[in-house]
């Protein structure tokens, strides 16, 4: 099985950082991973979409996903690029303040999270994406929370290392703010099934 995810938002919200952290965390957990950005026009204020696919066995996914089964929505702007490609019944983890502006949520499983408020409580309003990362990991079982923290710290550039602590608090607070889904993935038994 492959867990596929779109992360959608506005350039500057840390969309690509969330995707990279999730992908690196999955590598730490021994998974097969693909990480793709949707290129062109990546700039502050423009559309930013990241794509992550995680599996226990070598991946079949295309580098441009026609469909996915889950999404993180950091903004309602540019959502149509992602929303139209979600399979019915997808998990949509949305920033609470914009969730009402996402269309067709009756077709999906919407989980609202006040990520920006939680990040602010944890001391860094900019870490809303990290809250989402922790929440997504806890909801789905995609990666271990400790792996997500280590992956975030692993790639942060030297001139931003002062943000590691707040990011870690944000990831853990996000994980604590949600209840794991009943159908959270179990890559290990999926791998055994294949073997």
């Amino acid at each position: 099985m492959e867990l596929d995810l779109f992360i959608s938002g506005i350039g500057g919200q840390g969309i690509q950082l969330v995707g990279k952290s999730l992908a690196l965390a999955a590598i730490r957990d021994g998974r097969h991973v693909m990480l793709a950005g949707e290129y062109g026009g990546h700039m502050r204020g423009g559309s930013s979409v990241g794509t992550v696919v995680i599996g226990a066995t070598p991946l079949k996914a295309l580098p441009i996903l026609p469909h996915a089964g889950s999404a993180i929505a950091m903004s309602h702007l540019f959502w149509e690029r992602v929303g139209s490609r979600l399979r019915p019944g997808s998990l949509v983890l949305a920033e609470e303040t914009i969730s009402a502006d996402l269309p067709d949520m009756d077709k999906h499983r919407l989980v609202k999270l006040p990520a920006t408020a939680i990040a602010t409580e944890q001391g860094s309003r900019m870490a809303a994406g990290m809250v989402m990362l922790g929440a997504y990991a806890a909801l789905t079982g995609a990666v271990k929370i400790d792996s997500a923290v280590a992956a975030m710290a692993e790639q942060i550039p030297s001139y931003r290392r002062q943000h590691i602590e707040a990011n870690e608090r944000a990831i853990r607070a996000g994980a604590a703010a949600v209840t794991p889904l009943a159908f959270a993935v179990d890559f290990d038994s999926a791998a055994k099934d294949v073997a």
């Binding site: 990279k20 991973v33 693909m34 793709a36 290129y39 580098p63």
Partner: peptide, 10 residues
């Protein structure tokens, strides 16, 4: 191509 150059995989 572009997809090959920039898509990241394990």
């Amino acid at each position: 191509d572009n997809l090959l150059a920039r898509t990241q995989m394990g």
